[in-house]
Amino acid sequence: MGDTTLWVFGYGSLIWQPGFAHAERLPALLDGWHRSFCMHSVHYRGTVEAPGLVLALDAADGAACAGVAFGIAEPEADSVIEYLRERELVASAYVERMLPLSLADGREVEAVTYVIDRDHPLYAGALDLEDQAAIIARAEGNRGCNADYLFNTAAHLAELGFADPDLEHLAARVRAIRASGPGPL
């Protein structure tokens, strides 16, 4: 624990596919933000012609987001930040922030966290759950099917014991839409 010099907060795909070495991995809570499919994806889970949706943190009074904090040791800190910036800032719709986290072991830390820029054209905060489900059910990008991104995230949150009613609802709706057959967005 003593060699952790950088913390990173994962709330979506970083939970199940961080892509970097870490010295610690703990459940964590971020106050003032909620996990939401509020960002159009034109690279990873959709295209410019048919955007998908990916998770972002959107600010909300009284909200809290459960996720995973990754502790990074000093020798890897610079390369992890470089990797994360290449991965997360591809569309510039995320903003990199240092935000306070409460770790499951009682520690309070500051963590690199990627939050949505509400002024960015890819911000999709006005979509209701039904519209989100319709998009996620059909979209696909260079990292695969948008539905798989949702299903993986929901499954890993459930494994960690984190309840996320919106994601659970979306997963059920997307499965139902996909079971009804192909169709336009």
Rank of each mutant, 00 (worst) to 15 (best):
G144M: 06
N146Q: 02
L160H: 11
A154E: 14
L160A: 08
S36I: 08
L160Y: 10
Y149F: 09
A163Q: 14
Y123W: 14
M98Q: 15
R85C: 09
V48P: 08
A91R: 12
A77D: 14
E110V: 11
H120C: 04
A124Q: 09
L57R: 02
I135F: 00
V68E: 00
A126M: 15
R45Y: 06
D117P: 03
D131P: 03
P165K: 01
Y83R: 13
Y149W: 03
A59R: 12
G62W: 10
R45K: 06
A147V: 02
C38N: 11
L89Y: 10
T113Q: 14
V115P: 06
A64D: 04
R138E: 02
A91P: 01
L157E: 05
H120G: 02
I136N: 10
L122Y: 10
E82D: 08
E159K: 08
D128C: 09
Y44S: 04
R35D: 00
C65A: 15
G141E: 06
V109T: 11
A126K: 13
D58I: 07
Q132M: 04
V109Q: 12
R118G: 13
G106Q: 01
Y83D: 07
V68F: 00
D148S: 03
Q132N: 06
E49I: 03
V90Y: 15
F37G: 13
R35S: 00
P51C: 02
A137E: 05
D164W: 00
A155S: 10
L127T: 06
A134I: 02
D128T: 05
G144Y: 04
A93M: 01
A124D: 14
A91S: 15
V80R: 00
A124S: 10
C145H: 14
A134W: 03
H156P: 05
E159W: 08
R138N: 01
E96C: 05
I135E: 00
F70I: 05
A155G: 12
G161M: 00
E108A: 10
G32C: 01
D119A: 15
D164Q: 09
Y83A: 07
G46E: 04
R143K: 12
D61S: 07
D148C: 01
A163F: 07
Y114H: 12
N146I: 03
A158Q: 08
A154D: 14
L129V: 15
E88K: 06
A133Y: 08
A59F: 04
A56W: 03
W33C: 14
D131T: 11
D128P: 07
